[in-house]
Structure formats: C-alpha cells, structure tokens
Deep mutational scan, measured.
Amino acid sequence: HNLTITQGKLFFHYNPKLCLSEIHKMEEVSGTKGRQERNDIALKTNGDQASCENELLKFSYIRTSFDKILLRWEPYWPPDFRDLLGFMLFYKEAPYQNVTEFDGQDACGSNSWTVVDIDPPLRSNDPKSQNHPGWLMRGLKPWTQYAIFVKTLVTFSDERRTYGAKSDIIYVQTDATNPSVPLDPISVSNSSSQIILKWKPPSDPNGNITHYLVFWERQAEDSELFELDYCLKGLKLPSRTWSPPFESEDSQKHNQSEYEDSAGECCSCPKTDSQILKELEESSFRKTFEDYLHNVVFVPRKTSSGTGAEDPRPSRKRRSLGDVGNVTVAVPTVAAFPNTSSTSVPTSPEEHRPFEKVVNKESLVISGLRHFTGYRIELQACNQDTPEERCSVAAYVSARTMPEAKADDIVGPVTHEIFENNVVHLMWQEPKEPNGLIVLYEVSYRRYGDEELHLCVSRKHFALERGCRLRGLSPGNYSVRIRATSLAGNGSWTEPTYFYVTDYLDVPSNIA
C-alpha cells in the first residue's frame, strides 16, 4: 500500500525493539523526510534493546553428524571492536523451508527459537588472519532439518551509529543413524509349514526405512522333555500350542467401542483428552525405555581390526524358502538304536541362519518350516543398504507352526516275539517326523474274553527296548493296539495285532 503524509511529521519514542533503520525507511515511504526535528525521533529510546544489523554474515563451514552440527561463519568486528559482546545463534526444527525470524513471537518477546549466546573469538592483530567464530550444536535429532541463523550482539553506541551483522536463515539436516526397533511384532501360524509375521514401523526411523531383515531359527525343545518319565503317576503330560491366527481386521481397528449394538453396526467412541494424553505418555515412556535398553543392555560386537582377528559373527547367506525346513542338525536320541526319531534339535552355532529381506511392506510369510516346531524370529529395521547396512537392534518374537495331521501315527506293522515265561516283546517304529517329539506310547492289549488293559511306555523305555515287553501273560489269544502321544496330543491307534500265548508248562520236552 502507498502511504503519503502531505502535512505533519513523524514522532517515535520509547520503541526499544524498533531499529532506527526501520524508522528511516518509514520517513522515505511516507514522504516526511526532512520535516522531523532532532528530538522527534529519539536516538536513545528507539532500538536500544534490539540488534540492528546492516551487514550480512556468511557461514564459512558446515559439518553434520547424526546428532551434531558444527558451524563456522566469517569474522565480524565493528569499528570499535570492544562493542562486540558476542553472537546469538538461533535454531529450531523446520520440516519445511518457510521459516521466518519472527515465527511464534508474542507480545512478551518470546519466540519459538532456541538461542545460544556465543563469546567472540580472540581478536588477531592481523586483519587478514582473524579467527572464524563458530559453535557445535549438540543433542539434535537424527535425520531432522533445522533452520539456523546467527547475528551479532553489540553494545549501545553513544554516537548512535547503527552497526551489526546478521546471516540469512539456512537449512541444515542432520545425518541418518540406526533406527529404533520395529514396533509390535506379531507372529502367527496359518499352516503346519508357515508363519505369518506382521509389525509396525519404528517410532524413530532416523532416516528413510529402506528394508527390513527377518531372521528365523528353529528352537530346540526343553531338555526336561527328553529326561522326564511322563508315565509316572502324578506327572502331567506336557503340551505345546501353536500360535493362533490373526483376529479379523475389524476387531483390530483402534479407537473402536468394545460393545456392539445388537441391531447392527455401531460407531466408534472418540477417545477423551485424558485417554489420548495417557497414550502419549505411555508411548514416550516406551521410547525412553527402549533407548535405555539399547544403550545399557546391548553391547556392540567388536569388529575385526587390522591384526587379522576374525569377526566372530557368522556370515549372512541367503537361502531359498524351500530350504528352511531342514535348518537344524538332527541327532538321534540314543545312538545305539537307529530307529528312534531325530527330534532332539541342538543347533550348531556355526550354522548360517536363513533370512529374508523385506522391502516396502511390514509383513512376511515364512514358508518351508517344520510342522509343530518353535521358531525364534528376529526382526531388524534398516535405513541404508549400501555401502553397508545400517540397521536397528533386533526385536524378537516366537511362534510355533501348526501340527501336521497323521504325523504322530505309527507307520509300519507292530511285530512281536514270544519268549519263555510268557513274555512277549512288542516292537514298532517311532514316527519319523512327529509333531514336536514323542513323549510316550500307549499300549492297549486284551486277552479274548477279558477286559482291555493299558500300559504306558516312556520315551526312554522305548529307546532301550525298541518297544516294550509284556510279562506274566496268561495263555490265550491276544490283540494289541499302540498309539503315540506327542507334544500336540495323541496320534491314531494302530491296526490290531494278534498273537497267541501258550502255557509254557505244557511245552513238550526233548528229553527222552
């Protein structure tokens, strides 16, 4: 807008934040220059609390790290170098490059900038070799853009010569660093050979998330399962459950009422301010606690030095998902009996873990797994792929695949051998790939016309006998059925096997 004052003059007093240069501009645009008398524009009460600059400061050096910015700028000295009290560095987070010096300023003089007072450097006698002032900004957020400017702080001049310097606002972004852990990993099994893994992005990506790394490792069953005799009275049979499938998407929606109208769909109840505040506090606490764990609990591995020492970490090797089922080394339970199943799973520490690289999504279907087997899954978020990966501390989750139908069934015939004193040795093959492992066998036998009897055969007993022995049988026709019990439950009964026990007292003698 054009402003013209045809008559009258300007009068400025007691404006401590208004620089004289701005008042002189007002004289020019209003056409009143030359009308004012000496005392109409006070030299001592206008701009006496402001830094009124008329020179431009330029930054000469900028260096960044993930949490620091090192700045240096060209030296500046007023005509009387004693008038320079120091520099004021202003900075704040700036997602967009549209910041002005006066953003967030209120009537009390406060604003949204963080201000650092910096002492002037030592003055050199040689004007050509003056030290460049600077400042190291610490405690910054990774991968965050900051708006920065600097200006001088000078003393009051009796001659009211307006001098000083100020830089333009520059924008500097800190470097990326390792992201925080992925949030809320959930693993479920939808079949006997697959596990579905879902997660949420890290709360602090500290860069642009480029991919996720998912490692999985087959877990050995508890050692007590191999040692305890679950045929003993009072000892509860062990059981394991597989990871249940995901709930429906509708039930997972946030901010939804727990109660549904019987007449149909209901609208979600909005969260109160107290609920939102509580969630923010919980989120802040979780982030602080995660940072504490990362800094205190997890110790970084030592990389190899120039002395030739090897990095103890196993090298990563990509495998196809079809090879995942046989990740671990199978060892027989008892070496003397080769027909026992290889369900003991000690994992070799030198073995390469299978892994998958996930790009542009937060889910993965891990296939080719062994049925009813526990897996430990390790999830890392990465925001750099080359020249070397920059990934987060791992988040861990466990899951067990679903049982395989008929995996616990005894394959092959049940054979028998009759000894003296009416002892019958029953023999059968253990299931080759049971659900988890076989903890015991149930032997059901009966003599024709009598009630059915049951015998429990422990895992250890089966390994020693290759089956079991029935003792003290009365003469007669017998039928026997056997079924295995694994961590997933009972298998199917075998087809009945028949044998006849004679009275050993009636056996004919070869003595003449």
Rank of each mutant, 00 (worst) to 15 (best):
F337V: 05
E281R: 15
S268Q: 07
H454P: 08
F215P: 02
D323F: 03
L453C: 03
L455C: 14
G308M: 15
V439I: 12
S363G: 11
R483P: 00
S315F: 13
T401G: 02
R483N: 14
P431S: 07
V296M: 10
Y292R: 02
G325Q: 14
T241P: 15
H254P: 08
S474K: 05
E433Y: 12
M427C: 14
L225T: 10
G264A: 11
T340Y: 08
E389R: 09
E247M: 09
F226D: 04
C382F: 01
V327T: 13
Q384A: 15
Y230H: 02
S239A: 07
E258M: 13
A399I: 02
F355K: 13
R301I: 04
T502S: 14
G306T: 12
V501Y: 08
E249S: 09
N490T: 15
N360E: 14
V359F: 09
Y292N: 02
V358R: 12
R318T: 12
K233W: 08
K302E: 07
T401M: 03
N421Q: 06
T373S: 08
L473N: 10
R400P: 02
Y498E: 12
T340Q: 08
S283G: 06
F372A: 03
P300I: 12
N208C: 09
K287L: 02
A488T: 14
E224A: 06
L473D: 00
V424M: 13
C456F: 01
R447Q: 14
G306V: 12
G306A: 13
E258P: 09
T343N: 09
A309T: 05
S239P: 15
R447A: 11
P403S: 02
G207T: 00
T303K: 12
S341L: 10
I377P: 01
S398Q: 04
L487Y: 14
Y448C: 14
R376S: 03
R483C: 02
T328L: 14
L232E: 06
R313I: 08
I209R: 14
R370L: 08
S348P: 13
A407V: 12
D450K: 12
Y498L: 05
Q275K: 04
D273K: 11
V324T: 14
P403E: 02
H371R: 13
P349Q: 07
Y212P: 00
E265Y: 11
Y500M: 09
R301K: 06
A335M: 14
T347Q: 15
S304C: 10
R318D: 11
L379G: 01
G264W: 08
N421Y: 08
P434K: 06
N435Q: 02
K287R: 09
G489I: 01
F337Y: 08
T386L: 03
E247I: 03
G368M: 07
L455H: 10
D229F: 11
L426F: 10
